[in-house]
Amino acid sequence: KRPVSAMFIFSEEKRRQLQEERPELSESELTRLLARMWNDLSEKKKAKYKAREAALKAQSER
């Protein structure tokens, strides 16, 4: 099983909040919005998710 990506971790963290704030969005619209949010995120903020990705990857390799 492959470890999850930093973007996937970000998306899972933000998805529920966005669904509550924007219930009119379809699943595909929500996914596009999350992708745009990820792309607009600064490298400094992405680092938090990339660190979690690395930790999960290291854990799965044990």
Rank of each mutant, 00 (worst) to 15 (best):
E61I: 15
L56Y: 09
K1E: 07
L30D: 01
R36H: 02
P23C: 05
R32D: 11
L18D: 00
R62A: 15
S42V: 02
K44C: 07
A35C: 05
F8H: 12
E61D: 10
Q59E: 15
L56N: 06
S28H: 11
A54E: 11
R2T: 07
R15N: 02
E27N: 02
D40G: 09
M37Q: 04
L33G: 03
A55G: 12
L56D: 10
L25P: 00
S60H: 02
Q17K: 09
E20A: 09
S28Q: 10
F10N: 01
K46G: 00
F10Y: 15
I9Q: 04
K48T: 14
K44W: 09
A58T: 11
A47V: 08
L18I: 14
R15F: 08
L33A: 07
E12S: 13
A51V: 11
A6P: 03
F10M: 01
Y49P: 01
Y49W: 13
K45C: 14
D40E: 11
F8L: 13
S5D: 13
K44Y: 03
K48E: 15
A35W: 03
P23Y: 02
E27Y: 08
A47F: 08
E53G: 07
R2D: 08
L18Q: 01
K50P: 01
M7F: 14
L18R: 00
A54T: 12
S5K: 12
T31P: 02
P3Q: 14
R22G: 03
L25D: 01
V4D: 14
Q17M: 13
R36F: 09
A58V: 14
T31Y: 02
T31V: 07
S60R: 11
F8E: 15
K50I: 15
A35I: 14
A55N: 07
K46V: 03
L34H: 00
E20L: 08
K45A: 12
S60V: 12
K57R: 10
Q17N: 10
E20M: 09
P3I: 15
E24A: 08
K45D: 11
S11V: 15
L25W: 02
M7G: 07
K45H: 08
L56V: 12
L41D: 01
S26P: 06
K50M: 09
R15D: 00
A54F: 05
K46F: 00
N39A: 12
E43T: 00
A55S: 11
S11Q: 13
L18C: 07
A54P: 03
Y49M: 00
F10A: 00
Q59Y: 03
K14Q: 11
S60P: 14
L41G: 00
S11P: 00
K1R: 05
R2L: 04
V4A: 11
N39D: 13
E53R: 02
A6W: 02
L30A: 10
K48Q: 09
A35Q: 14
E21M: 10
E21H: 06
P23W: 01
V4W: 01
P3S: 14
A58Q: 14
L41T: 03
Y49V: 00
P3T: 15
E29N: 05
R16P: 14
V4R: 04
Q59R: 13
E20S: 14
T31Q: 12
E27F: 04
V4C: 04
S26W: 00
P3V: 13
E53M: 06
W38Y: 06
Q59M: 15
L41H: 00
M37A: 09
E20W: 06
S42C: 06
Q19F: 03
W38P: 01
V4I: 14
L34R: 00
L34A: 05
A54Y: 10
R22D: 07
S5A: 13
E24P: 02
E12R: 08
E29G: 05
E29C: 04
S5Q: 08
N39Y: 10
P23D: 02
E13Y: 03
E20Y: 09
R52L: 08
L30S: 05
Q59D: 14
L56G: 10
E12G: 05
R15Q: 03
E21L: 09
D40L: 08
S26G: 08
R32I: 14
A58F: 13
R16G: 12
K57Y: 06
S11M: 15
A47E: 12
S28T: 10
L30F: 02
S11F: 13
F8K: 14
V4K: 11
A35Y: 02
K48W: 09
K14L: 08
M7N: 09
L41E: 02
R22Q: 11
S5T: 12
I9E: 02
E27K: 06
V4Y: 09
Q59K: 15
E29Q: 08
L33S: 05
Q59G: 11
S26F: 01
E12W: 03
K14F: 13
R2P: 03
A6S: 05
A54Q: 08
S26D: 06
R22W: 07
A54M: 09
E43M: 00
L41M: 11
P23E: 02
S11E: 13
L34C: 12
K1F: 03
A51N: 10
R52W: 04
E53W: 07
E53Y: 07
A6N: 04
S5I: 05
K50D: 05
F10R: 00
S5G: 13
A55R: 11
E12Y: 03
E12K: 11
E29T: 06
K50H: 12
E43V: 04
R62D: 15
L25C: 07
K57T: 11
S42I: 01
K46N: 00
R36S: 14
D40R: 04
R15T: 04
A6C: 04
K48P: 14
A54I: 07
K45W: 04
R16Y: 10
A47I: 05
E27C: 06
S42H: 05
R52Y: 02
E20D: 15
A55H: 14
R36C: 11
E61S: 12
S42Q: 03
R16L: 11
E20R: 14
A58G: 14
R52P: 03
K1C: 02
E29H: 04
R22N: 14
E27A: 07
N39I: 06
F8P: 04
E27Q: 07
R15E: 03
R22V: 03
A51R: 13
Q17E: 14
K46A: 03
K45L: 07
R2S: 10
S11Y: 15
A47D: 03
L33T: 08
M7D: 06
S42G: 09
E12C: 05
S42N: 06
L34I: 10
A51D: 08
I9R: 05
Q19D: 03
M37F: 04
R22P: 00
S42F: 00
F10S: 01
N39C: 07
F10G: 01
K14V: 10
S26C: 03
K45E: 15
M37N: 03
E24V: 02
W38T: 00
K1M: 14
A47C: 06
R15L: 05
L30W: 05
T31K: 09
D40W: 02
E29K: 04
A47L: 11
Q17F: 05
L41N: 01
R32G: 09
R16K: 10
R15S: 07
S42M: 01
A6M: 02
S5M: 05
D40K: 06
K48Y: 04
S26K: 01
R22T: 04
Q59L: 11
L33W: 03
A51G: 08
R22H: 15
L41A: 06
R36E: 09
R32C: 05
K46H: 01
S28F: 10
K44F: 06
D40Y: 04
P23L: 02
Q59A: 11
L41F: 02
L34G: 01
A54W: 05
T31E: 11
A47M: 07
F10P: 01
I9N: 04
K1D: 15
E29R: 01
K50F: 14
W38K: 00
L33I: 15
W38M: 00
N39P: 01
K14G: 04
M7K: 14
E20F: 14
L33N: 08
R22C: 10
W38C: 00
L33H: 13
F8Y: 14
K57L: 10
K14S: 10
M7T: 04
E27M: 02
E43S: 04
P23T: 04
A55L: 09
S28C: 12
S5H: 01
T31F: 03
M7H: 13
F10H: 03
L34S: 03
R62V: 15
R32S: 15
L34E: 03
R16M: 13
N39T: 12
R15I: 04
A47W: 06
L41V: 02
R2H: 13
E12T: 10
S60L: 11
M37W: 03
M37Y: 07
E61K: 09
R2I: 06
Q19V: 13
D40T: 04
A35R: 14
L41P: 00
R62N: 04
S26E: 08
S26N: 08
E20G: 11
A51C: 06
A51I: 06
S28D: 15
K50Y: 10
